[in-house]
Amino acid sequence: MAQGKTISRGASHSSGGPSVLGAGVTVRGRLTGDGDVTVEGTIEGAVSVTGALIVAAGASISSEDALQARTAVIAGNVEGGVVAQGNVRLMASARVRGDLKGSEISIDEGADFQGRIDASFELPAELAGGRSALKA
């Protein structure tokens, strides 16, 4: 699990370059495409990107559909949930209403979250066999 306190951009980039929506930006509509996206402003609508999604502190995204990304780091306000192929991380300043789905979910202390968590992961060996394996 990532333990760093800083928000770093995703290490790899898809075909598009990194995008930043600054604090003074409001988008009403759909944002889709390739590349990493950092949101510092406001989006009212769906977000679907193939790269890393960063929702900075102070940013706000409200969407009827879950946000889609390869990985997601949330430090701002999200209504509508998050679906990632990789990790989803809620930082301490995050406020999320909606379900989270990803290969790994982490929620920092102080984050405000209401929703369900759907994380597919391998059980540790001692739990993989269910209760019978524990007794053995």
Binding site: S14, P18, G24, V25, G29, G33, G35
Partner: peptide, 17 residues
């Protein structure tokens, strides 16, 4: 402060200060 990268499509209204 704001860069809408080459791979990105926005359908809707973009306002920026």
């Amino acid at each position: 402060s704001t860069v809408i990268g080459a791979g990105i499509t926005i359908e809707g209204e973009v306002s920026s200060e």
